[in-house]
Amino acid sequence: MLLIDCPWCGSRAETEFSYGGEAGIVRPADPDALSDAEWADYLFNRTNPRGAHRELWNHAQGCRRWFGVERDTVTYRIARSFTLPDAAGAADGGVERDFETGDPTDAEPGDRR
């Protein structure tokens, strides 16, 4: 069971989260202008990498925020969590997490200690 860092609430068990697929899939501004192939690409095609993968998670049983996680699809190691851009287009740098100790390395509101 993964231990996932919610950027707000800190480390929580995987069971509190729901998975939202690959991060960074942007909805086309004008879907009507797209060919069927282009639309299908947006709809269905994902990078599915071996290794680092940026993906969306929702802290469903916690603060209900969506956020990003960079996870290795081979080792499941999570390199970092990050918030998504807000209305102003700004996102914080994310919670860098030291995997060895499992602790976020910088103090966030939801830090463990």
Binding site: C9, R12, A13, T15, E16, Q61, G62, C63, R113
Partner: peptide, 24 residues
């Protein structure tokens, strides 16, 4: 509950939305 409930981790004045058994 999968939270660490040790008072040093989760003490007076703290709260958390989390799972307890199969409820939120």
């Amino acid at each position: 509950c999968t939270l660490d409930l040790d008072p040093r981790e989760f003490g007076p004045g703290q709260c958390a939305r989390t799972g307890l058994a199969k409820a939120t």
